[in-house]
Design a protein around this nucleic acid. Structure first.
Length: 621
RNA sequence: GCCUCUGUAGCUUAAUGGAUAAAGUAACGGUCUUCGAAACCGUUGAUGAGGGUUCGAUUCCUUCCAGAGGCACCA
């Protein structure tokens, strides 16, 4: 009886939330277990993989190499001035085999030529390069058959089967609206999740919400001082943002406000019932708005566990740091300081007023991930401005011996350049923030304008749907097409480029193919005798064969932009072909069917690639 | 002050030690009575500056210059 009473007394806004979290962790564990049992598509039917394996076999024959060299074979398309189908450079091999590249090239090319391969016609050497000429028709029919069989699965592989990765992305602060800066973490994170899964990984997507901390003290203070309940009910997100900005404006004039905010947060950490219910209200309102934006962008997570969940656990972590002498209490202030090694600067875990800091909660978060998912990788997809912070955290976790059960684990901060406005970092506090929702609306409007201008045959409903697809795609693509590390300057005009080098270019190419397939009006079926007539067709098929390997590379370097670059090259190649050859006028039935198989493959690959980047493909536009 | 990242064509970007540095955009010229010209073809145009490492450097090291970010009670 007494226990029940105690339980009831203890029950507050937290209790139900904690239950929710535990359930979502269990569900995620189930999801992983299920995925690990699934059979994944293999690369073995891809002729490019077959060529690679043949070369490895030849290498083993002539060098008795028992080192693992499969992944060192680097097959590429040769530069345009070289007349060959594929090229291998032997420079990397020479380091592994500790031999002269020219000699390797000579020996290897000789062995390949004697091997009587079903795909390779001949190997020639120029310097350290081995240039391969293929048995083109077998290669061509092999890759087209493979793609048309695999369909949406084309691009998948099993090279990372049975591996688990936890990804921390988006993770917005719930007290303020999502800005365009946060968009990068969201887009890059989701794209990396998709890419990882395509190579066989099970991925836990974690939206680590910033739903705790002094910011809530600020927000609650602002609400209590200037807030208006009715206004918040009408337009919650906007009003909360106004309060947040107002607080910072006032705090500029009167720095004492910061102390007041800290005081409120301190009470919140002590579970003051009234404050806690305000906290819950603001949190729920914010999350509702955030989810709306995610729905439009197609972002999904397995876990929504915010910092608040780790509040109490972080106390244990702080104690653990003190016990293991990785932290100390500052004798002057009483704050608790963590002491990383490797010349990294110290950082605070707990403030002098006894409340916890982000770092302590983040360490608790890391521990939970290790315990619940035992992952091979943990990726923090967070801006480069937090690079130092993550090296500090990882250093402490390492020295707390948290990785002893899993020494191979990779914990990485996947940084990226910031979105700059007028050359500077954007900030909610200074009001220089462009809100993501506004940006999306604007882009969708721009798209609609152009669609109306370009295509008069669409009805209203279609126009709305397609504007949404094109407008949102343009924003995401603009974010993902360049390599992660460079800063992005925010430029409205650049966002709405609907020409070459944009998602719209890729979508347009896809739509064109759909249009041809509609005109031909026969169900595409792969013919018995696949053949081609023109070199452009064969080149396209080579490019297609690379798709799964591009995904693998994008996973290895955590670089979604490699997919974008690849798709642009593919689309360009197709458009070239399209301009050269009139597909529907092909007389020979086998050739026509082969061409249908080819363009279907191109369309599938563009669609699968854009899906990885979280961009949709319309049927018409 | 210390540390980190970035610097490629007028502009936005690609190329993670390899062959003649690749695209888009802008400019100029060409291609639609024929599969959707939101496309295609052609011309002009670039590695911030200096040193080093090596068969070979946009890529690695170093000095300088320029921009951005971080460095204790925000997250």
């Amino acid at each position: 009886m007494l226990k029940l009473l105690q339980k009831l007394q203890k029950r507050d806004e937290f209790t139900s939330y904690q239950k929710e979290v535990e359930l979502s962790i269990k569900n995620t564990q189930k999801k992983i277990a299920k995925e690990q049992k699934q059979k994944l598509p293999s690369l073995l039917h891809n002729p490019l993989e077959q060529i690679k394996l043949e070369i490895v076999k030849c290498l083993r024959e002539c060098f008795n190499a028992n080192v693992d060299i499969v992944n060192e074979i680097n097959i590429e398309l040769p530069p345009s001035h070289i007349e060959a189908d594929l090229t291998i450079s032997t420079f990397e091999l020479s380091k592994i085999l500790k031999s002269d590249p020219i000699i390797i090239a000579q020996k290897l090319a000789g062995t390949i030529n004697q091997a009587n391969s079903s795909l390779i016609a001949k190997a020639e050497i120029i310097n350290g390069f081995i240039n391969l000429s293929l048995k083109q028709s077998s290669f061509y029919s092999s890759i087209l058959r493979e793609i048309n069989e695999q369909k949406d699965a084309f691009g998948s592989s099993d090279i990372n089967a049975k591996k688990v990765a936890v990804m921390d992305y988006s993770s917005p602060n719930v007290a303020k609206p999502i800005g365009v800066g946060h968009m990068r973490s969201t887009n890059i994170g989701q794209a990396l999740k998709n890419i990882y899964e395509k190579t066989g990984y099970s991925v836990v997507g974690h939206n680590y919400l910033g739903d705790w901390g002094t910011q809530f003290g600020k927000l609650i203070y602002a609400y209590q001082t200037w807030g208006d309940k009715d206004k918040i009910k009408q337009n919650p997100l906007n009003e909360l943002k106004n309060l947040y900005v107002k607080f910072h404006e006032e705090a500029e004039k009167d720095p004492k406000l910061e102390d007041k905010a800290r005081e409120i947060f301190k009470k919140l950490e002590k579970r003051d019932k009234e404050l806690l219910s305000l906290w819950k209200e603001f949190r729920d309102l914010s999350i509702e708005g955030i989810k709306k934006t995610y729905r439009r962008l197609g972002i999904n997570f397995d876990l929504w566990i915010g910092e608040s969940y780790f509040n109490e656990r972080s106390r244990e972590i702080i104690q653990e740091c003190l016990d293991k002498k990785l932290g100390h209490q500052d004798p002057e202030t009483g704050a608790i300081v963590a002491d990383p090694s490797d010349n990294l600067p110290t950082f605070l875990l707990q403030k002098q007023d006894g409340t916890t800091l982000y770092s302590a909660r983040d360490l608790a978060n890391l521990k939970l991930r290790l315990e619940k998912f035992n992952p091979n990788e943990i990726l923090y997809i967070v801006g480069d401005d937090q690079k130092l912070y993550f090296s500090q955290i990882i250093n402490i976790a390492q020295r707390l011996n948290w990785f002893q059960n899993n020494p191979q684990i990779q914990i990485e901060h996947i940084g990226f350049g910031l979105v700059l406005s007028d050359g500077k970092k954007m900030s909610t506090r200074k009001g220089s923030l462009v809100e993501l929702e506004d940006l999306i609306d604007e882009s969708v409007n721009q798209a609609e304008k152009i669609i109306r201008q370009k295509n008069q045959n669409l009805d209203e409903k279609n126009i709305k749907e397609i504007s949404e697809i094109l407008g949102i795609g343009a924003i995401i693509y603009n974010d993902l097409r360049q390599s992660r590390t460079r800063n992005v300057s925010f430029d409205w005009d650049k966002m709405f480029s609907f020409e070459g080098g944009s998602s719209v270019y890729l979508q347009y190419t896809y739509v064109r193919i759909q249009s041809i397939l509609r005109k031909i009006a026969q169900t595409p079926k792969t013919p018995k005798n696949i053949r081609f007539e023109n070199a452009i067709e064969f080149n396209l098929s080579k490019k297609l064969a690379f798709f799964p390997f591009v995904i693998i590379k994008a996973e290895k370097f955590k670089s979604p932009h490699l997919i974008a670059t690849y798709l642009e090259e593919l689309a360009q190649s197709f458009n070239n072909f399209y301009n050269e050859i009139r597909i529907i006028e092909t007389q020979d039935q086998d050739l026509l069917n082969s061409r249908i198989a080819l363009i279907t493959s191109v369309a599938l690959t563009i669609k699968n690639g854009l899906t990885l980047l979280n961009i949709k493909t319309p049927k018409r536009m």
